[in-house]
Amino acid sequence: MEQVNLGQLWQEQTSKINQAIALNEQVLQQILGQKAASVTQQFKGFKIRGIIIAILYLFILGSALCYAAVHFNRSASYFMVSVAAIFLINVKALADYIKHLVWANKVDFDGPVIAIQEQLARLELSLFRHTRIMILQLPFWTTFYLSPAWFPAGTSLGWIIFQVTITGLSIFITYWLYKNLRIQNAHYKWVRILIEGAGGKSVYKALAICQQINSYQAMEQLINR
């Protein structure tokens, strides 16, 4: 059988492309005008809608917290502690998210491929690690509606058992998820379902890129020995 000459095939393709390809300057001007001219345009690639919604959400939480603080009475103590915790966890998660996006956007693509891809993939994985912090707010959603005016003294034993079960369970789930929802466990089916459900397919892709880079670096070390 005739050996296939890969280089010759590529050259055939190249000459075909070079003869037939045309740059559409009108589209180019439009794209550069729309997309690449200003710094604010660069932020369009971000999940900007999500960030705006998160800021609005934080504003509502913060307003509720301020209102409770100004008009404080003892009956709002569960509410204040719970909402303050939810607020702080969300602020931390949003700040980390924005910080990572800005870092990712600052990566200079004119660098060596292996180094730049390692930087981008690790950023993607580290973003996942940081957004994991969101899980920690779950138990506080089971306590914000309580009031010392009626809990635990003024309520039935049934309600107390129900409340303790719900809060205890949410603490357990939170602990378990926070401990196990890690990149190292990405090979488990349930981790994959949870990550992909949260729109994290790119996390898996980043993981695959990291594995490829590791194989290149391992070879590099072997050569340098």
């Binding site: 390809i21 740059l23 559409n24 009108q26 589209v27 439009q30």
Partner: peptide
């Protein structure tokens, strides 16, 4: 973009 034309056309 708003146009359906591609930047590089073969």
């Amino acid at each position: 973009t708003t146009t359906h034309d591609s930047l590089l056309q073969l």
